[in-house]
Simulated scan of single mutants.
Amino acid sequence: MSEERIEVEVPEDVRGKRLDVYLAGVAGSRSAARRWILKGCVEVEGRRAKPALSVTPGMRIRILPPEPEPLLPYPEDIPLDILFEDPYLLVLNKPPGLPVHPGAGRRSGTLVHALLAHCRGLSGVGGPTRPGIVHRLDKGTSGVMAVAKDDEVHRALSEQWKGHTVFRRYLAFAWGRMRERRGVVDAPVGRHPRDRKRMAVVEGGRPAWTEYEVLEEYEFLSLLALYPKTGRTHQIRVHLSHIGHPVFGDPKYGGRTKRLGGLPPRERRGAEELLELIPRQALHAEVLGLVHPVAGRYMEFRADLPEDMMALRETLRGRRWGT
């Protein structure tokens, strides 16, 4: 089932409608609502219900929509920037804007589609919609990714991630200046209590640990190197937002237009110009280090900053904005 829980309270002006009719707008159709109810995805006052149940004002309905039926991905001719490849492993530099795998509303144009066109064999451990995918980067994040070509290699790489032995270095432009040149954010990450499509630092979340280092400072931005020890969803983005320095350009975690209101006019004009250079979060997976599962030797892979982040850095260094 999906993790996107929906809770509804029947309003005062609704009375006597069948449950499947009432939920048709949520499910997309009455037949879809009926399927959800019969699958046990709908509870009324904490109990499973029948489609014909008459709803009354004040009733509390909880819905956990089922996952959509996956469509198997197919090969697509999408260019890949390959850093390393042998019969067991492929390492690439993912460009910003490329989703890693198919998902809701995304049936083509992903990294998986490109990999299927490039490789004859990929691991199946992750399921039919995620062949070869050992770890992932967000759509808007660029940088180094490793892909497994068979199940044994996939499991061996997964153990390295679970054991926190993989070395990862990210580069990010963050709002503001850090109080210390080096530091650690040690804060648990879980689903946002109100917005299930976002993550947040929450009590009872999964342990998450990110080290940061200041590389360069500008008037109202900093260039950081980040070393995540754990690999929670959106971890770096959530941690930097949590400490008041969201990733520049990040619309999901307060790194885009929300920061403009508190800036003096000159800095605001400069920030608006900089945001035009990068339509995404300014976050890049620069280095990935791991032990080759077959050769048994440590290998490290590096991807240079993509063009948009290079342009941002050069503009900041030249101070050619806000004049």
Rank of each mutant, 00 (worst) to 15 (best):
M1R: 14
R5L: 12
V14M: 10
V14Y: 11
R15V: 06
D20P: 03
Y22I: 12
L23T: 08
L23Q: 07
R34V: 05
R34T: 15
V44Q: 04
G46T: 02
R47A: 14
R47C: 00
K50I: 13
L53D: 06
R60M: 11
R60L: 14
I61G: 11
P65V: 06
P68D: 11
L71R: 15
L71D: 12
P73C: 13
Y74P: 00
D77Q: 09
I82W: 05
F84D: 07
E85N: 08
Y88K: 09
P95V: 09
P96I: 00
G97M: 05
L98D: 02
R107C: 01
G109T: 05
L115H: 08
L116S: 04
L116I: 04
A117S: 14
G124Q: 04
V125L: 04
V134E: 03
L137A: 01
V144R: 07
V144H: 10
V144M: 09
M145C: 10
A146G: 13
A146F: 05
V147Q: 08
A148V: 12
A148Q: 08
E152D: 15
V153S: 13
R155K: 14
K162A: 15
G163C: 03
H164T: 12
V166T: 10
V166Y: 00
R169G: 02
L171Q: 12
F173Q: 06
M178Q: 07
R181C: 00
V185H: 06
R191N: 07
R194Y: 14
R196L: 14
K197W: 07
K197M: 14
M199N: 12
G204R: 07
P207V: 07
T210K: 02
Y212F: 15
E213M: 08
E216I: 06
Y218E: 02
E219I: 00
L221Q: 08
L226S: 01
T230L: 02
G231C: 03
T233H: 05
Q235T: 01
Q235N: 03
I236W: 01
H242A: 10
H242V: 04
H245W: 04
H245T: 12
H245N: 09
V247H: 02
G249C: 01
Y253A: 05
Y253L: 09
G255V: 01
R259P: 04
G262Q: 13
P264W: 03
E267D: 15
G270I: 00
E272M: 11
L274M: 07
E276C: 08
A285Y: 02
L288C: 12
L288R: 08
G289S: 11
H292T: 03
V294E: 11
G296D: 05
G296M: 06
G296R: 05
M299Y: 06
E300H: 00
E300Y: 00
L305S: 13
M309Y: 09
A311C: 09
W321F: 15
